[in-house]
Amino acid sequence: MIINGVAIDATFAEAFPMKATRAIITAQNEKWAMISAQTMTGFATSVIACGCEAGIEGALASSETPDGRPGVSVMIFAMGGKGLAKQLETRAGQCVLTSPTSALFSGIDGGTRIPLGKNLRYFGDGFQVAKLIDGKRYWRIPVMDGEFLTEATTGQVDAVGGGNFLVLAQSQPQALTACEAAIEAMRKIPNVIMPFPGGIVRSGSKVGSKYKALNASTNDAFCPTLKGMSKTELSADIESVMEIVIDGLTKEDIDKAMRVGIQAVCDLGAENGIKRISAGNYGGKLGPFHFHLQEIMA
């Protein structure tokens, strides 16, 4: 399959079941809601070492938030429910509770309920106040700038993590430009996050390593500097590869995000140095979710 001169490999991305949650952060203005959200979703690129994968789903207008202030929706993904709950609570406590003017609300009504502000309330040292409004429990925690309002729980749902595609380009600037265009388009899709820096990862990994202590190492088959010394996947004209990893609430959400992302890359086309689109997988043996590139783009 070739789109605008870009070859779409007959391969697939392999993804795994994860647990996900969403929280809504509001503040006096979007600037401070975004600062809080960026802090909360920092150091959360990969479960390999961060404990979770987190990202900003999007900004919310005042009319879309529970307290009528500007807000930001964030999503956190982890391999298990316990880990997710711990990450959510730690991040909420250190990054949202501390952020000026912030308030924190549940972003998923159903699902298994996990603590959002339920335990943060103890920061109130006995001065915290509970309010049950329309069946939802809120905690009002006195803080130095006024009151931190948080919903007690949010929803945890089954999700999919690790959807991905690789952009193979003639040069590094061209790969980056194409990935930036993809991320811009993909950020408009709800229910997904791209957890790596700016949504893009330049150090895709393979499973295992020659070093026993490591369970992942550089994806040498896609490293352009190793073209002559490794079993390479790259042709002579490819000088740079970048990857976009997608976590989503459902397989369909990731399908949609991959489609618009790949389309945005292909719109730049061969004339902008984009040669191929590929994907990372483990032979289909590890993850139950397979995203076949050519099927997605058909």
Binding site: P66, D67, G68, R69, A103, K131, I133, Y138, R140, G146, E147, L149
Partner: peptide, 9 residues
């Protein structure tokens, strides 16, 4: 004080 739970209430 300006209390943010009041609009929700």
């Amino acid at each position: 004080h300006t209390l943010s739970f009041l609009p929700i209430l």
